[in-house]
């Protein structure tokens, strides 16, 4: 396998996972800017783990599996050429996440460069698309905030419990690594440290993925997503407010979550009466591919507060990408993803 676009945070995380994966052999990793440099000078946690150096994308040779870690908008115009390099591709960007080309105009502000390719990609969230992934050749990445939101509310949608007339409101609190490896004036440490910065109160692009996911269950409702940056490097906590249909009891909600996630290897239901972390908490998920999901219900109003915590670079990006690759290759989908996180951290 090779990685085109391996100098960013998701590329580095993907490389970390691939180097420890029992079935993957990393052949090439690209960066135009860092061509010729050892990858461990950029991804310092990989010192003594690999002698690889970055190469330019035009030096990439054919391989069995190609991961794309390019910035959004970079792969869509080159997909015809990229697809000649490998039979199977996992693209971590947003370029092939949405099925409807018009959604790119609306949510990404520009038309899609290769709309004919959209139907050839499967949306890379195994909890929703495992069966299609098993026979897919092209898999899209997932938005980290979309993943957290979708996994939080998916059981309610699948069970038909959502009162669609009232919409879904979701607040996501996110760490700074969501912003990528490039810096800006606003991410300068004196400006960024300690913030609780509302950066997308409305119009967050990942809303499109959540709406698309809900449509799989014929749930058509408004989704109001707001994002707030907090003082963590990794992590997303989605707090979704969903009104359920009249007559829904907490037992029905429990049943919905059990049915959706009992068999899922990377989704854990966290709603506990005891212990130190009684609801989902991103802190203990750093580096792991788990999504911790929980809820609380207000029986007097029918409001369910649905929660999901993930590591944005793992279940929200590279971890899910490897999970999808495992499924696509016919391997155990947990291969290379067994790290449970650290405690304390």
């Amino acid at each position: 396998m090779s990685i085109i676009g391996g100098s960013g945070y998701t590329g580095g995380e993907l490389l970390r996972l691939a180097l420890s994966h029992p079935r993957l052999e990393v052949r090439q990793v690209t960066s135009e800017r860092l061509d010729g440099q050892f990858v461990h000078f950029t991804h310092a946690n990989l010192r003594k783990r690999t002698p690889l150096k970055f190469v330019r994308a035009d030096a990439v040779e054919e391989c069995d599996l190609l991961f794309l870690g390019l910035p959004h908008g970079s792969a869509m115009g080159r997909i015809d050429q990229l697809s000649t390099l490998a039979d199977r591709i996992v693209d971590l960007s947003a370029d092939f996440r949405l099925r409807n080309a018009a959604d790119y105009d609306r949510w990404y502000g520009a038309p899609h460069a290769s709309p004919a390719w959209l139907d050839r990609f499967v949306y890379g969230l195994p909890e929703l698309h495992r069966q299609e992934l098993a026979s897919a050749k092209y898999v899209s990445g997932v938005g980290c905030n979309a993943t957290a939101t979708t996994l939080a509310i998916w059981p309610l949608a699948a069970a038909g419990l959502i009162d669609t007339a009232r919409g879904v409101i979701c607040e996501v609190k996110v760490g700074s690594s969501e912003g990528g490896a490039a810096s800006a004036d606003s991410t300068h440490h004196p400006e960024r440290a300690g913030v609780m910065r509302s950066f997308a109160p409305t119009g967050h692009r990942h809303t499109a993925e959540v709406l698309q996911a809900l449509r799989l269950k014929n749930v058509v409702t408004d989704v109001h997503l707001s994002a707030t940056a907090v003082d963590n490097v990794r992590g997303v906590l989605a707090t979704a407010h969903v009104f359920v249909k009249p007559g829904t009891a907490e037992k029905d909600v429990w049943k919905a979550y059990r049915e959706a996630y009992t068999q899922e290897p990377f989704v854990r239901i966290v709603k506990e009466r005891t212990g130190l972390y009684r609801y989902p908490e991103p802190k203990i998920l750093s580096g792991s591919n788990y999504a911790d999901v929980g809820f609380e219900m207000d029986p007097t109003t029918g409001r369910v507060v649905a929660l999901c915590a993930i590591d944005n670079l793992m279940k929200g990006a590279a971890g899910t990408a490897v999970q999808c690759a495992n499924i696509m290759m016919g391997w155990d989908e947990t291969l290379g993803l067994d790290f449970p996180g650290l405690h304390p951290i």
């Binding site: 709603k271 506990e272 009466r273 005891t274 009684r278």
Partner: peptide, 9 residues
Amino acid sequence: TQCPGCGAE
């Protein structure tokens, strides 16, 4: 006993 899922006694 204790439920391994929710911790209830």
